[in-house]
Structure formats: structure tokens, C-alpha cells
Simulated scan of single mutants.
Amino acid sequence: MIIKCIAVDDEPMALNLVVSYIEQTPFLQLVDKCSSAITALRSIQDHPDVQLLFLDIRMADLSGMELAKIIDQGTSRRDRRIIFTTAYDQYALEGYKVGALDYLMKPFSFADFSRAAAKAFEYFSMFEEAKQVPVTRQVSVTPDKDYIYLKVEYQLVKVDTGHILYIEGLKDYVKVFLDNETKPILTLTSLKNLEEKLPITKFRRLHRSYIIALDKVKAVTKNSLQVADITVHITDQYKDAFAEFLSSWA
């Protein structure tokens, strides 16, 4: 898989460093390098298939953060992501709000860059996989079972809730693990939205990042549970819900 990207920085040395890192990374393809956010905006318009921006924040005329907000208004941030590069750590929270994939603090090494690039590779790999998996592979239709509908790219997929093991939340998308599939379904929604679709008698959010199918729990301790091949440690926020589950678990 090749990820098309643009490097944006108004400092020539910083820009050239990012470009050199991109060129050393086999799965990244440099489409353009830009010395301002305005130039980058034009480049994005000229190259609508660009997926990833390595974007400096403090720049003259238009800041990287302002550019990120413009991009978010014009296209889904799920198929175009941003990795911020900056010398100022006070922008981390604002970067999260605009859906930044990662946040590199200058000066950063090639190892730091590679970790952020690997995160982008994992994201876009799952994104592409979700688009290519056929509906028939994901659906097990029986009339007497409950279902939910998940948005998987350009289609709604009907999923038998009886096959759900657990659901993992990852920022603006979630992974749904099934007992009849080797790979999870990737759906572009939030864990909170998905929690509201599921029956509370069968599913419970017992961790910030996980919803658990209660009948798929294999073992419990006083502060953790095991489902499929993972162990979920219960935090204080969910200890009351976990205590309620323990009282009825057998």
C-alpha cells in the first residue's frame, strides 16, 4: 500500500528534513512539498487523492491549524489525515479536536517520524480493507436473531449481534470483532454511538476503549475480565457497572 502525502513547512531546513524522511519510507509517496499553508491548499485542490499531510502549525498568513479546519470542512477527515509537526506543545489539544492522526514535536528523529508514519499506514490499511470487504462476507442472516447496521464506507452492513465478541474504539472509528470472522469489521463511527445501538442486557461498556459481549466473557477477576484473546482491566469509571455484571455472572 502506498500513501500519497504532502509536506508543509515554512522553514526550508525543516521542510527538507520531512521530505527526506518521506523519501526514505517505502510506503510513502511525496506528491508535493509546500512552503506555506496557502500553497498547500492549492496543491490539495490539484491533487484530490492526497491522503496524508505532514503539516507545520505556526506559519505566516494561514496557520497549519487553520488549514486543517478548512480541509475538514471540505472533505471527510477519514480519507485524508494530518500529522502535525511543530516546536510548540500547546497545540496538542487543538490538534486532537481537528482529528490529527499524530503530533511530532520538533526536533524529531527518523525513528519518531517512522512511528507516526506506521500509525498512518495502519489506519489507511484498515480503511482500505473496510472498503474492499464484500457484504456477503460480513453478514450472517437468520430471521430469529438481533442485528445492527454498521456503516462500512459506502454501504450499510447488517451484522448479527450474536457473533460479536467485543468492540474496540480507536478515535473516530471502531473495530468490531466477531467469532465467525478472522478479521474485525472497521466502521467509521464512535464507540458511544455504537453503544447506544446495542442491547444493554447483552453488551456492556466496561472500559473507555471496549464494549464487551457479556455472554462471551471467559473468565473474570475482581478487576478484569477475559474475552476472546484479550484481557480488559476495569478502571474506576466503570467499576460500578463491572460490579453489577459480576453479581449476575456465572
Rank of each mutant, 00 (worst) to 15 (best):
K106T: 01
Y166N: 01
E244G: 07
K183F: 11
Y147P: 09
D144C: 00
S76A: 13
T39F: 02
S63C: 09
K222P: 05
A117N: 02
D72E: 13
L150E: 01
F84V: 07
F177H: 15
V157Q: 11
D240M: 10
L17A: 09
A117H: 03
L15V: 03
L191F: 08
A111R: 11
C34V: 06
P26E: 13
I83R: 02
F27V: 09
R42V: 09
L170N: 10
A118V: 02
L186Q: 04
A243S: 13
A250C: 06
I70M: 14
D49A: 13
P107Q: 04
Q155Y: 06
A111S: 11
S63V: 09
R81C: 06
T142G: 00
S109F: 08
H207F: 09
D215N: 14
M59A: 06
F124E: 07
V176A: 09
A241S: 14
K218V: 11
Q73H: 09
T39I: 06
T75M: 06
G74N: 15
L246W: 05
L30K: 11
S63E: 10
L194C: 08
I185W: 06
D229H: 13
L225Q: 01
R115W: 01
Y154L: 06
I200P: 06
D172L: 07
H207G: 07
C5N: 06
F124C: 06
D46T: 00
K145C: 13
R115M: 12
F110K: 08
F121G: 00
F242V: 04
L62K: 14
K4P: 02
I70P: 01
L165C: 12
A68P: 03
K202I: 03
I200C: 05
S20K: 12
F203Y: 11
A243K: 15
D89C: 02
E244V: 12
G169L: 01
D144T: 14
D46R: 14
P199D: 14
K197S: 13
S114W: 03
E23Q: 15
K239D: 12
Q73N: 14
E11D: 14
V157D: 04
G95R: 03
L186P: 01
E181F: 03
S35P: 00
Q73L: 13
V98H: 02
V157P: 03
I38G: 02
N16E: 15
S209G: 07
Q132W: 00
D112Y: 03
S43C: 12
P48F: 04
M1L: 02
L101P: 09
F127M: 09
Q155G: 00
M1N: 04
L225G: 07
V232L: 07
V135R: 10
N180K: 10
Q90D: 13
S248M: 01
G162W: 05
Q132T: 13
G74Q: 15
Y210P: 11
M13N: 10
S247L: 13
Q226M: 12
T235D: 08
K151L: 09
D32F: 10
F121P: 00
Y210G: 01
F242Y: 15
D160K: 00
E122M: 04
F27Y: 15
S109I: 07
F127Q: 02
R208D: 10
E244T: 14
R205G: 08
L17K: 12
T25S: 09
P199C: 08
A40Y: 04
L52E: 01
S36K: 10
L225H: 07
L178I: 05
E195F: 05
L165M: 11
Y154F: 11
D172A: 02
L104T: 03
